[in-house]
Design a protein around this nucleic acid. Sequence first.
DNA 1: TTAATAAATGTAAACGTTTACATTATGAAG
DNA 2: CTTCATAATGTAAACGTTTACATTTATTAA
Lengths: 335, 335
Amino acid sequence: MKSEPNLKTVAKMANVSIATVSRAINYPDKVDPSTLSRINKIIKEINYRPNRVAQRLRIKGGHRKIFGLLVPDIQNPFYVDVIRGVEDYAYSRNYALLMCNFAQSKDKETMYLNIMKSESVDGMIVAPYDEFDKEVIDLLQKGFPIVCVDRGLGDYQDVDIILVDNEKGAYEAVSLMIKKGHKRIAYIGGLPSIPTSQQRKDGYVKALQKNNITIDDSLIKFGDSKHESGKEIARKLLSLKNPPTAIFTGNNLITLGALESIHASGKKIPQDVAIIGFDDMPWSISLNPPLTAVRQPGYEIGKRAADMLYQRIMDPDRAYSKVMLNTILIERNSC
Amino acid sequence: MKSEPNLKTVAKMANVSIATVSRAINYPDKVDPSTLSRINKIIKEINYRPNRVAQRLRIKGGHRKIFGLLVPDIQNPFYVDVIRGVEDYAYSRNYALLMCNFAQSKDKETMYLNIMKSESVDGMIVAPYDEFDKEVIDLLQKGFPIVCVDRGLGDYQDVDIILVDNEKGAYEAVSLMIKKGHKRIAYIGGLPSIPTSQQRKDGYVKALQKNNITIDDSLIKFGDSKHESGKEIARKLLSLKNPPTAIFTGNNLITLGALESIHASGKKIPQDVAIIGFDDMPWSISLNPPLTAVRQPGYEIGKRAADMLYQRIMDPDRAYSKVMLNTILIERNSC
DNA sequence: TTAATAAATGTAAACGTTTACATTATGAAG
DNA sequence: CTTCATAATGTAAACGTTTACATTTATTAA
């Protein structure tokens, strides 16, 4: 494989030192116009591009033009929206993106965190594994620029974070169910260790309490945030002697799994069982039936997270900001 | 921000030269056991990790342990499967992954290709923008390790590639429609420049011809491979004076869009209009109605692509391999 | 003309690794 | 006790940039 052209190649062709070439690229007004144009012509001719690895090694933190992005589950369309938001922002500012999916595995998260660090990213956007995420907190304490999305870090407050009012979103959804006359409402959450799973449960509980419905613990279940567990838990719930008449599902994938089980059980939605999902999807309207869902602005979250990270990098001493966006309850036909 | 420990830090603490530390890590049997354990203790203690950027700069191609992955649309669940396959393989071999989504934009593709090159990846897995993709072909000609997934490069044959028999998959789907009595069958393809859009159309045409149904060009449409265009085109198709009784959609997102339009039109599926989608989704069964679809083994494609890339890197002179996997037609209730 | 200033360019160090080569210490064989 | 091989370690160059500093050249002011 032929080796790529580098500064030396260009310098030799232009009969100047590599420093001049470097300057021609980074500080064009610091080099003589005629030299500049000669260099530029050569660069174009041989299609020279600076080696980012060498650049990153030399340049100090904050100006390497690369972000890290670490999401828990790329199969979840919500995170895909977040990714797109981050990516669009990065592209617009000419940042590269080192994007990793830790697939809800603590080991993978640790490994990717290490890779990102040792890839010398300027900063990263992370949806932490859980609220105690030691690795992330360590990084923050060392002063590494990080913004959290979707999930916070419990008591640890010195961090930029953008998320959604999960409790309120859940509260509204469950309130709607109650308004429609449901009393036996189940909640299927994701991994219990994930903050959002708990917050959404809290919203669910509040709504029941507010309406004087006693909490039935056998209707509150947690899975692993994936399709299969939604399916399995819904199946069990529906085969209870006294099954719920409504199910509030804690994320996208769980919703889809639950939907599958409800259909398999032969029950009609919403007549026999109602369902509202946390997280809307572009195709929710094409589901059977069109799904009533709590929409999170994933794309916006991603975009703003990237901007927060950028600001943090540019001014490491600025105050931490917490942004909490609202969800929207989209009523369709599943409740 | 405190600076990370490096070889020098460890060397100083262990009272040896950085070369010895480096050897302790890379060739443990080349250093004295007592020195080794001393060094290892220190490494663990201060949690030293080699700087991948510096490593990559030094180490020559093929052993830098980083792959690039370039997909056309991360919103399309098919590519998400491919990504997962590649990622699992990479993780198992301790490779990092520079993952980029060019969102069906030629400009972005070019930029990401450049970034990957200048990030010095060992090789990359790419679903090219179209079959003429000059940038990708250039890279190949320079001997850069690349494997193509999902889409080929037209006449350019010197490349490893793994994809699915699109024509056959489409042929089977449309044949099923015909068997069910449909004569006016529409095809909504993705971007016409994408090879798969054409191959799936070819399968569609073949099935019609085989059954002596005359091709009606007004029923063959191409969009931009996204949800919106599926929706829009389906809407127009359905409002024709003589609308199709069946629609074969050329990808995931188009299917979802078309589904939305069909529902909006008030037509019943499959009584009024049948639909079969290319690409199955985990939640196809939860759609309204459960979707009949052509399944591509995305995860396997990703996994095998990664392995092909690995093999290519390890042995640059091996013969090129083309792998064509079969699709499976999954009959549910939409046709 | 000369001295001072500004503009253009060059030189070399630094970033954190790996590795060819040189050096030293260790032990075995004669 | 040499002599030689081997093991352990060190030295320094290299990877491709950026940049502080030094040098050269051109320009201006006196």
